[in-house]
């Protein structure tokens, strides 16, 4: 178990989680989770299915109220903010988003302006520049008039990213954002997100991608943090064996110099 760096300085806009616990009815799902996501960095949440990654993201995003502990954004407690204020500062990209409504991609992206808009329409152009910029960053400008229902999985994910960016958040929370994407789109999405300079917290499954695009990794098992730190400190063959129950070699690729994980299993060819 790699110890958590406590007492770290949190600059304005960073996310600090302290002793967070949360559960559904009597089942405790998160146990005393503490972690630091410094402003402008990318933090990867790793862990097997059911380890509490999505729950942690939801509690950190303020969508669920914790049973104990706190989540701070800069100096403010996320759960003391009004829903509207929170939505202007934290945007969430869900693992899977579906609707049965006949919306266009442009209309979906425009949903991101809801936290910035008043009750009564204040002219059509509210947020037009922000929306255009969000579409440019997510590379979806050409999709604006397309019907949401006709978009591919990758296009949907990028449209939702544009919607999240239209919220102009300081913090972006991503729940397995690369789930339905092919390799090129996985790399593309994470590279785009990294270049934004936002505080990013992403639940990820792919260990190589996590090592390549994250500044810090936090590993969860059964709702507890079992390791946290820079990718080379966290991603060890012992940890992969311990957390995922898979034998693995962690090495550095000779050309790219990047960390990569090769697993072994006698059932494989």
């Amino acid at each position: 178990m790699t110890g958590l760096k406590t007492g770290q300085m949190t600059s304005q806009g960073g996310v600090t989680v302290r002793d967070l616990s949360w559960g559904v009815r009597d089942r405790r799902i998160l146990h005393d989770v503490s972690l630091d996501c410094p402003a402008g960095t990318v933090t990867g949440l790793l862990g097997p299915n059911g380890s509490g990654k999505t729950s942690l993201l939801h509690v950190m995003a303020g969508l669920r109220r914790p049973a104990g502990g706190s989540v701070r954004l800069g100096e403010e407690d996320v759960h003391d903010m009004s829903a509207r204020t929170r939505a202007r500062r934290i945007a969430v990209l869900e693992q899977h988003s579906s609707t049965n409504l006949p919306l266009t991609a442009g209309q979906v992206i425009e949903l991101g302006r809801i936290p910035h808009r008043g009750r009564w329409p204040a002219g059509r152009q509210e947020g037009a520049e922000e929306i255009a910029e969000a579409m440019r960053l997510a590379e979806v400008t050409h999709l604006v008039d397309r019907d949401w229902q006709t978009l591919s999985g990758g296009e949907r994910q990028r449209v939702q990213l544009a919607r999240a960016l239209a919220q102009q958040p300081g913090v972006l929370m991503l729940d397995e954002p690369t789930n339905h994407l092919d390799l090129a789109h996985q790399i593309d999405l994470l590279a785009t997100v990294r270049e934004l300079g936002l505080t990013v917290i992403a639940a990820l499954h792919d260990l190589d991608l996590a090592a390549a695009f994250c500044d810090h990794l936090v590993v969860l098992r059964d709702g507890r943090v079992v390791a946290a730190g820079a990718p080379p400190e966290v991603l060890t063959s012992d940890l992969v064996d311990d957390v995922y129950g898979v034998e693995a070699t962690v090495g550095t690729h000779e050309h790219s110099g990047r960390l990569h994980v090769v697993w072994h299993d006698e059932r494989a060819r």
Binding site: R86, V92, S98, T99, L111, I114, R117, R119, Q167
Partner: peptide, 18 residues
């Protein structure tokens, strides 16, 4: 606008500040 935010379900509405 609150009703629009429900298009992608409860979590999405909540994360849009509703």
């Amino acid at each position: 606008a609150d009703l629009d935010a429900f298009a992608f379900g409860d979590s999405s509405a909540s994360s849009l500040g509703v």
